[in-house]
Design a protein around this nucleic acid. Structure first.
Lengths: 182, 182
DNA sequence: TCTGAAGACTTAGAAGCTAAAGAGTACATA
DNA sequence: TATGTACTCTTTAGCTTCTAAGTCTTCAGA
């Protein structure tokens, strides 16, 4: 584990002030919204990560569990569909499934009706881990939002989905990957 | 590059509906806010990633450039301070700096007043890349938010900083790492 | 001068990814 | 039936980036 003590991250306002100092054409209000979004997400992911780590599952495991649960009962997908869904190569998916099989989270077997295909299926234990992670996550989320009034929740949800629609429309398909610009 | 065609991600509403089906105790409004936050952030990061990739810098490069710029003129930090700031081990920082020196983004030299220390300094080219990345990012961000009224911007900024304060208070220091639970 | 602490680097190795080659299965067509 | 082709998954080789542990250099204090 890397040492993260000392050398603290600047506060949001300090960072915005520094940006304005180093970069003239900056709307501080826009930057504050965007930076807060990035930071909020980063902190939330740290919290989720701690919770799932306590369950003994990695973020890679989590992604696969989520995809299988969203597929609905009987919680099955093929490796290449999973790979496309998660943006991995089939080779990477093979290794990931190997690990998850040994962890007891999923099973892998040939499709008897078409023996070219392979079926990855959630085990009861895998589904249990997903449910437990969701339970912890929702407790955290409720707590996070508890200071927001009903009106604020409505507005926030509406505005965020509007932004999401805009960003999805602006970029039809994916490219690189990057942590928050923040 | 992994194939990401076909097998589309469910829409936000489809996903919420699936979560409700699979997990009883779920406040759909809370989940919608949280999921929209996660997705929005993910899409934004993809956009940033494309932009910086066009400049020939990686997300790792970007993090270092940002830290040095935020340090202010003369844009200097020691490797271990950078490592702590970015949550890496000093060894990883050494390699990252190696790469960035060959890319001409930073210089590395011994501190003559204390020869144990090393000083990493932003080059004019590195600063130029940061400025250019910021320029592209702000254009994208202005465009993203353009449909929001002044009132909506004010409320959004205020609510997000409130949430940020809450999440920062709730978890003083970091733990694991995870992509969006979404 | 000696010694311990601290900072940066080196080495060895683990994890996870990609690209490309390989193996097995299904199916269309002769 | 035989065979070529396509499809799916796995294997192999190699790359990148990280951590852990050890080394080297420098500085500060006894």
């Amino acid at each position: 584990m890397a040492d993260t003590s000392g050398v603290p991250e600047p506060t949001l306002d300090e960072q915005i002030a520094a940006y304005q100092r180093e970069f003239r054409d900056l709307d501080p209000q826009v930057e504050k919204i965007v930076s807060a979004l990035g930071r909020l997400n980063r902190r939330m992911n740290v919290a989720y990560g701690r919770q799932t780590a306590n369950l003994g599952i990695s973020s890679a495991d989590w992604e696969v569990l989520k995809a299988l649960v969203l597929a609905g009962d009987p919680y099955r997908m093929g490796p290449s569909d999973l790979a496309k869904r998660l943006g991995l190569t089939p080779a990477a998916m093979t290794h990931r499934i190997d690990r998850m099989v040994t962890e007891g989270l999923v099973t892998r077997e040939r499709d008897e009706s078409n023996r070219v295909r392979v079926i990855v299926e959630l085990t009861p234990e895998g589904r249990g881990k997903w449910l437990e992670a969701m339970r912890m996550a929702t407790v955290f989320e409720e707590d996070l939002l508890q200071d927001l009034s009903p009106d604020e929740r409505t507005v926030l949800g509406e505005v965020l989905t509007r932004l999401l629609r805009r960003v999805e429309h602006a970029q039809p398909d994916a490219g690189g990957r990057l942590s928050d610009l923040d």
